[in-house]
């Protein structure tokens, strides 16, 4: 009797897992097929909406001319540097204000004030102050990334269970140990939510920043193609955004599951 149940369970779960893995890709694949069919059948004007295949061909052509690699890698460079600088700043500020009352009193109001400025509205200011070189684009990404990381680090630290802190003190932990064993790991889930959100902001900011004035980057490629109604490249850029966004999300998720193994295991048990 027990054997029978086990067997059935195994088989069921086998199918289940496969299905679950495929499930997320059903909609994108169906959409692309529909799109191709609609263009081939002439329901859509191929002048306005080229088929997925011609977008792919456009991608291959741009790859061969080296334009695609150049623009994607430049965007990636700007995104990475901006994220690294803005993320570190946000993290350090979040730590300071989460841990120190003095720092909080000193800076929090100011930060909250700046936080509500849409960071893209800073574009004219950034151009005047930093010009139109790499630093302008990178600093815009910085500003965009800074706040989600700051807020999540801050609220993660403020949200630490005071009972755990008391326990740590009762067990003789010093300040440094309290931080490394309780405060930081306790705030980490919230911080990682911030990281994930910031990765999204990173791309959107960069794309806009690259359309201001640039002769490179994906944002440039798209706005440039748009100007000349080059729909293949416009759609190619959109697909690249989607892929980069997904890639960032996968990286963030993997980071979460690596750092927060305890949450996943607990979840499986509940």
């Amino acid at each position: 009797m027990e054997n029978v149940t086990t067997l059935r369970e195994t088989r069921n779960s086998g199918i289940h897992i496969n299905w679950h893995r495929l499930l997320p890709w059903v909609i994108p694949v169906v959409l692309i097929i529909l799109w191709q069919v609609a263009v081939t059948a002439g329901w859509l004007d191929s002048q306005l909406i080229p088929s997925p295949l011609s977008v792919l061909e456009d991608g291959v052509t741009l790859w061969q001319t080296g334009e695609l690699e150049k623009n994607v890698s430049i965007s990636l460079f700007r995104a990475t540097v901006g994220f690294a600088i803005g993320g570190s700043l946000g993290f350090v500020l979040g730590l300071m204000n989460g841990l120190s009352k003095v720092a909080r009193g000193l800076t929090d109001t100011t930060i909250q004030m700046f936080r509500n400025i849409p960071h893209l509205s800073l574009i004219p200011l950034v151009i005047i102050l930093l010009g139109i070189g790499e630093s302008a684009k990178i600093s815009l990404v910085c500003v965009g990334v800074l706040f989600p990381i700051y807020i999540n680090t801050y609220s993660g630290i403020r949200g630490i269970d005071p009972e755990l802190m008391e326990m740590g003190r009762a067990y003789g932990l010093n300040r440094r140990q309290l931080f490394s064993k309780i405060v930081f790991p306790g705030a980490l889930p919230t911080i990682l939510v911030g990281v994930r959100y910031a990765l999204g902001v990173m791309w959107t900011t960069l794309i806009v920043a690259e359309t201001i004035s640039s002769n490179s980057g994906i944002g440039y490629m798209a706005s440039n193609a748009q100007e000349f109604m080059d729909m293949d490249t416009v759609l190619l850029c959109i697909v690249i955004y989607a892929l980069l966004g997904k890639l960032s999300d996968i990286i963030a998720k993997t980071l979460e599951s690596l750092c927060l193994e305890w949450q996943e295991k607990g979840g499986a048990n509940q």
Binding site: I74, F77, S216
Partner: peptide, 9 residues
């Protein structure tokens, strides 16, 4: 890729 991108700028 990002480093490569830097040298492209």
């Amino acid at each position: 890729v990002a480093v490569y991108g830097y040298f492209q700028t």
